[in-house]
Amino acid sequence: MHPALQGMLTIVIGVGACITYFWGSNQFLDKVLYPPKGPNAGRNINRANIIRPWLFLFPAVFALSLYLAYPVVETLRLSVTQRIPGGGSEFVGFDNYAQMFGEQKFWEAMRNNMMWLLVVPAVSTAMGLLVAQLTDRIRWGAIAKSLIFMPMAISFVGAAVIWKLVYDARPPGTEQIGVLNAIYVGLMDGEPQQWLTTPFWNNFFLMVVLVWIQTGFAMVILSAALRGIPEETVEAAIVDGANPFQVFFKIKVPQIMGTIVVVWTTITIVVLKIFDIVFAMTNGQWETQVLANYMYDKLFRSNDWGVGSASAMVIMLLVTPILVWNVYNARKEMR
């Protein structure tokens, strides 16, 4: 069957099944199981109301447990087992972790991930805040914001192609077609550089791509936060003789600190999972490995599920503090 047709059919079947389930199960509850009439009407209504939320929740809870909760447990299990050739697996304790910690590539990935964690959220948030503040009061601010926001819609792979063109290098003496080398050779009289294959610094050239994408996100959130600052506080500061810089750093920034932290952590999570950019631009060569790509390498190239799962657990471990903090805050807010 043609995939497009299959897709259409899936939509119809999927949506149809969902609606049938929700409608049918509610009907069953009200008409057959606990009809709100007869001698036990009152008891039936109460019972139906106890069950009904779970009818609404069941598909979601089922999918969440199967697709997100179960994998966490299963990955944990896989990370302490090893596949036996010919099928089955055996418990090997922390051997996979030991093997992983003994690999130089793993530590390279850890080092790079830490650098990404230090640089990308900080720079994206700072740039976002800068743009949000600058565009706040100018007439064409909305257009400027939407253009800076645009990279959010572009895939990491698309961005990788876009930036590979920027970083392109041609042999010395020929015309440079990458903007960066054209500027470097033309204005600074340098030799054309292979930006992506120069160890250590190439990491930063990869980070630029993510900063370029995430700045728009930071800007949108922070811009809304800036708008929400009570006008009186700013007015009072100006009356007291504060200059624009003081107003920004001493009045506005402290008031949106909560939002800044949210933006920072959200970008941190994106960074921890960063995969596509490295996969498409360098594939972890030239000392640009990151954890997610290391894991992909282990899982699908070396076919080593044990070490692959162990590295996935490392990513999970790094995410956990943010997870706990988010849950804590969400609960606080609900009260």
Binding site: L64, P71, L299
Partner: peptide, 30 residues
């Protein structure tokens, strides 16, 4: 809707929001 365990479920959803999908690859493929 009001039911026991609601707050817990909401917390779980917030938690799952950040679980890296990398973890899900091998178990789900299996």
């Amino acid at each position: 809707m009001d039911f026991p365990g609601r707050a817990l479920l909401i917390a779980a959803v917030v938690g799952l929001l950040v679980v890296p999908l990398q973890l899900a690859l091998i178990p789900l493929l299996k």
